[in-house]
Design a protein around this nucleic acid. Structure first.
Lengths: 233, 233
DNA sequence: GCAGAAGATATTTTCGAAAATATGTCCTAT
DNA sequence: ATAGGACATATTTTCGAAAATATCTTCTGC
């Protein structure tokens, strides 16, 4: 159990339970808490400095997100990683992302175009500034996420946004899992620019097919370099 | 607060918290707990006979399901019903249902065809036996749900199944809301048979377009007879 | 030697009290 | 009269102890 130690309280939310939910979530996504690892209350109490009840509430939230699994009367574990799960997440992400991108292209106005272009521009600047492996850099990760969020931002569906965010986190955990074994990240600069151009040009068919390939190739990369970490065939 | 009184414990799950989650969920879906109603711990304690902590865990689960909303430091409320929300749920359901049905048609074998036909047959028998308004009858509701589940049962995506189940419940709450004001249910017998036939015939385009209309018309019916109950335009 | 019971230990689950926070009421100053 | 502050009340949130359950260990009978 090498979780994030007791930081300043109430960093994310007003209540302690919400705060701990976020910190636990980050620890799981970053694989500081390993897939399949049992989450025992004694250890969590020590690591997070909260009581049974508060931790239980946090774990219940994360169970709904698919990052934690609960076996009744037998406690909680970090959700295991399997190739079936990765495939399922990837296919579902593609479905949702294509839908939201299509709607965004249909709905988006000037502000949307500006948001897409400027988030991509920022991403490019960061890539110029940073050497080789940006993927591990938090600044790059944030800018990358913001670009993809800008693309779908006019999807007009709170439900789909919620699903998308949850799937994104689950996928990110797999990405972090393979990061340690990945030699060099493939160059995504061209991919991102192509997606942006297709979106701005309102070429829905092209934009969605590029997004499809973009997500799929990320997933393939995980399988390629982390397959030995995935249980089940 | 006219919630389901203290029934036999542990009806649904091994732990009390899971049990109460299910009972609260049913009360909310059935609109025995009204949309927007504050969920105060004192009242819930009385109605469900559980402690703060246990109730809090249940409410946290339901918040993730979109049936309860939480305002930090200000407690929980039953999620409000709005026409925007209904539209969002409906469109998302159609997206997910079409995807799962397409996959089922592609993957389903003999067992799937048999399951689809037999669940529809059972539904027909129940409709023959019952007079006029079957929609309120629990037996019909179960058979109806099982038919639609059979249709998508070979979708091979735990993630999509989870999303589907959650959306189904949220939609069912809206349906129950309009049930009290609906004169007579439109005849769905023909619709169901047509969907079954298209599915068995592996006509994906037809089957998905029928499902699309099926879900959409149910939603339209809610708007028609319960619009005065929905806040927000 | 081994299956199964009985007891001991570890862990989760539930509870009700205490702390923290929000809400409502009353009073005062302008 | 009314805005703002101070107190009182209502409600949520958090805690650690107690109860319930599971897991491990040991012992007995065959």
């Amino acid at each position: 159990m090498t979780a994030s130690a007791v930081k300043s309280r109430k960093e994310f939310g007003k209540t302690l339970a919400v705060d701990i939910t976020h910190r636990l979530r980050q620890d799981i996504v970053a694989c500081r808490l390993k897939p399949g690892e049992p989450l025992k209350f004694d250890a969590l109490k020590l690591a997070f400095g909260a009581s049974f009840t508060t931790l239980r509430e946090a774990l219940t939230s994360l169970t709904a997100d698919g990052l934690v699994v609960a076996e009744e009367q037998r406690g909680f574990r970090v959700a295991p990683v399997t190739s079936d799960d990765l495939i399922d997440i990837t296919q579902t992400r593609i479905l949702i992302e294509i839908e939201l991108l299509s709607r965004s292209i249909a709905n988006g106005g000037d502000d949307w175009e500006i948001a897409v272009m400027s988030t991509l521009h920022r991403l490019g600047r960061i890539e110029e500034r940073l050497p080789g492996n940006h993927v591990e850099n938090p600044e790059w990760q944030i800018a990358h996420r913001q670009f993809h969020e800008a693309l779908v931002s006019c999807g007009r569906s709170p439900t789909l946004f919620g699903i998308r965010a949850s799937l994104f986190e689950r996928a990110e955990r797999y990405r972090n899992l393979s990061a340690m074994f990945r030699p060099q990240p493939r160059d995504k600069v061209g991919e991102h620019r192509a997606i942006m151009q297709a979106a701005i040009a309102r070429d829905t068919a092209l934009a969605t097919s590029l997004i499809d390939r973009h997500i799929r190739s990320t997933s393939d990369n995980v399988v390629k370099y982390a397959s030995h970490l995935l249980t089940e065939s």
